[in-house]
Design a binder for these strands. Structure first.
Lengths: 329, 329
DNA sequence: TTGTATGCGTTATCAG
DNA sequence: CTGATAACGCATACAA
């Protein structure tokens, strides 16, 4: 392997000089800069990030933590968007990113987690799917050992930022739009998890709209499960006018149930996954740009690692309707 | 940060001794092993993988190369399976894995690719979605600079292994099973890419069956595209008895087209993605365990990196039928 | 503006 | 079986 030392020799300068041009230091004459650069290309020199990291004590490595326990396909779509968005932006910024699944650290206590990430020389974390119940992970974040960006979870602090859409507003808007097309008064609202942040936000939006329009809303928790939504629909839908769900998967479960029951009720979803195109009916939903969100999360993490302080970032959303032919073309 | 040096001091031994117990060298007395280990836990020492890698010149880092250009959802499911399978196994083996998308290296020539992976201290590659047309990537593999495992592509060599199911056999079997339930003679076979390895293998299996059963098969390339399969179905299905596709996505496209045309023909798929549950009809298909395949790929790569020589690995497959209620529960 | 020297935390070689 | 000590490739404070 050709090292900085060989480059120095070839260019007839000192090692430190090479290092300086490599890291774009000021105070290097154009002349020597050129000498070094030609030597670099001639020798095909590749800086060794490992050595660089060891010496500078800056690895630029971050971990993308993802909550994949359940093998649900539409969730795959969302996570793939997160992963591609994050990885591409990381490459662009010269950062190094590894993907870590919750299951890999599920059994660990805080100390073990810290040790694990330290041994991996991780400097920052991006967490998708953080829930209040996950106390170990929560304390890891609070420990301040790592700069952290939380996707879809609150918790802004000195070295923790949060990024998400305005879930309450989005739910309010999509439901409003949905009800404009379908005049209904008795609604079944299938919420997410009982004490989940996004679930609560969306529920808040729904309640606000219900107040404004004087709707009669029955609220049930579907746990973001397609199957659970199916059951709730079968149980409660018959005497309701419409079903509004806090996620597309639940909306699909509800729609499929309605078809099997052979009754029709309009259904409204949330997330904008392409599976909606296969559900049989075109539904209203909220489209989140997961890729962009992850991309911005990486950028925000980079800012934190450079000394910035935590902040709350709100991303835009769109109201859409998804149909099969759009999805496949 | 507490280092090996602190541990040595605490345990009252030399640095090198600590290193030896850390790496499970023989020739270390139980006594000193204990002294060192207690010191380690007391101090909460975490070995620095960066320093270790620099010194040993072994990073244990591998890259998982994935071909995500088209944003197709069922493909997401497959890639997520690959990713989780690979990452979990890598953690288990103490390897370090980064995910790289084809788009990130698409513009590079061989030299640039080599440089990129070297700068990342990558020692091995796992490639999913390699196609003959990708000459730069092909030459990267042949360069021998990195140990490589190819998923679903041929190319066994000194330091290259290949892992895949027996595509010809699987296509033969699933089509046979399918035709046992649906007595047909005139078949539309929608193949994948014209000169793709898996496509050719599957086509081979189909042809063999056609010979055996004296079927009349019209072969068309669907390019693994749902939309293309839809078009082909609309064009050719009316005077055929059944449609057999080289992928589930194309099978779904065909099925949806048939529904829209309001005619019925049995359809057979290949891959076993859960989206099949949403297609409206229960179809025959081949189930691949993508997670296990990726997991084994990592294991194989590890073997290569330890000096093993390349080999061809054939994974098992299953014939199944997917229905909605199975998918969501 | 450039060069020298030291250290980052390990591993590995070789003496003892 | 254990301990010095020289690398590994680079960054950086400091001297020139």
């Amino acid at each position: 392997m050709v090292s900085i030392r060989d480059v120095a020799k070839e260019a007839g300068v000192a090692i430190s000089t090479v290092s300086k041009v490599l890291n774009h230091y000021p105070n290097v004459s154009e002349e020597t800069k050129e000498k070094v650069n030609t030597a670099i290309t001639e020798l095909g020199f590749v800086p060794n990030t490992i050595a660089s990291a060891l010496s500078s004590k800056k690895t630029g490595r971050v971990a993308l933590l993802i909550d994949v326990d359940r093998p649900v396909q539409a969730v795959d779509e969302i996570f793939m968007q997160y992963i591609t968005g994050a990885i591409n932006k990381a490459k662009e910024k010269g950062m190094d990113i590894i993907t870590v699944f919750f299951t890999m650290i599920a059994e660990m206590n805080v100390e073990e987690m810290i040790r694990y990430f330290q041994s991996q020389s991780i400097e920052g974390l991006i967490i998708c799917g953080f829930s209040r119940e996950d106390t170990a992970l929560g304390r890891l974040v609070k420990s301040g050992k790592f700069k952290t960006v939380l996707i879809d979870a609150p918790g802004v602090g000195e070295n923790t930022s949060s990024i998400h859409i305005d879930n309450a507003k989005a739910q309010y808007e999509v439901a409003k739009e949905f009800l404009k097309k379908n005049t209904c008064r008795k609604i079944l609202y299938i919420s997410g998890k009982k004490s989940g942040y996004v679930s609560e936000e969306r529920l808040k939006g729904m309640k606000q709209l219900a107040d404004e329009l004087g709707l009669k809303v029955l609220i049930r928790n579907g746990d973001f499960s397609e199957l659970e939504a199916r059951k709730l629909t079968m149980q409660y839908a018959p005497d309701k006018d419409a079903i509004i769900c806090a996620s597309d998967m639940m909306a699909i479960g509800a729609m499929k149930a309605l078809i099997d029951m052979d009754i029709y009720r309009p259904v409204c979803g949330f997330d904008g996954v392409s599976l909606m195109g296969y559900a049989g009916k075109q539904m209203h939903t909220v489209k989140q740009d997961f890729k962009k969100i992850a991309s911005n999360a990486v950028e925000e993490l980079s800012r934190l690692m450079e000394g910035g302080t935590g902040q709350d970032i709100v991303m835009p959303h769109k109201l859409i309707r998804i149909k099969y032919l759009d999805v496949i073309s």
